[in-house]
Design a protein around this nucleic acid. Sequence first.
DNA 1: GCCCGATAGTTCGTGTCACGAATCACGGCT
DNA 2: AGCCGTGATTCGTGACACGAACTATCGGGC
Lengths: 160, 160
Amino acid sequence: MSKHGDGQIGVVAGLVRSAFLVNAVYAESSREYGITSQQGQLLCVLMAQPYGMGELGAMLGLAKSSVTGLVDRTERNGLVRREPDLQDTRAVRVALTPQGSKLAEEFYADTCRRIEKLPAGLSADERDTLASLLGRIVMDNKVPAVFMELDKGTSSARRQ
Amino acid sequence: MSKHGDGQIGVVAGLVRSAFLVNAVYAESSREYGITSQQGQLLCVLMAQPYGMGELGAMLGLAKSSVTGLVDRTERNGLVRREPDLQDTRAVRVALTPQGSKLAEEFYADTCRRIEKLPAGLSADERDTLASLLGRIVMDNKVPAVFMELDKGTSSARRQ
DNA sequence: GCCCGATAGTTCGTGTCACGAATCACGGCT
DNA sequence: AGCCGTGATTCGTGACACGAACTATCGGGC
């Protein structure tokens, strides 16, 4: 029952294809805001708080030199800023500029809106179930906080 | 109940972070097979059947010139081949070479194995539920078949 | 106080990737 | 035959990612 044959696909394909979908949304959204998806991702990470280069590399899964380049380009666009770390002269804190902060808010909100549309065909209960299952996968696999949590609930928990 | 506050995250964050996870798996898997994730994705698409350049662009969401480049590099690696389209002299069919086919099988199987490990903390029933929900999202949003379907079942139907 | 290994970041060179604009060549219609 | 749409390539540009080599500081041991 509920095997295959009908339109049913497996977990693996489901995960891969939904990831593909999310990537596409991210790319499209970034493009509209005049940034690349990598820079968009960087901005989203920095919305929570400033981070050092090493931390960023760990969170984004990038080599140090890649982070340097990414921050370079984003800094050139005026969206982030390197601030000296007061505790450690070697280290650097990467933080959003006011402009970057503004753009990040808008980009983040817009991207959320688009992603939220993906499961439009699901009922509120189903979305909750999905959120719960994905949440466990994410927790189990210790995904870094590459994407902030909305303060407001998903579909249930609509108020407060 | 089961709102937030505990480790619960929203659908949006769940989708984004699980996508991040899948991307990481794809990247790591590709790397081990000496290819890039884009080339790996191309191979996976071509496992089903040969495609024209235009079709590939549509499936992968790439501009035509991007496809030309990707196929160029992959061809240079001996994994795919451009064959003339018998119906249309202008057109080209991109197909796997024997070597590419072999690598694609291995890469695909290995990647599947890794992705399947992601929801290891979920019961068989939960995996089925997840597959079903993701399947509907994928269907509703008309995701191209960027990833083949396993002939064998998902988590239920594991035996036989 | 000095030395030395570990740590934080940058620089540099290379290759991949994606794109738009321009171009070429053929298909198919009128 | 003449034209326009389509399939694909070329070219130039910029972003991205990486490893290796390098600089500068930190921190612990002596």
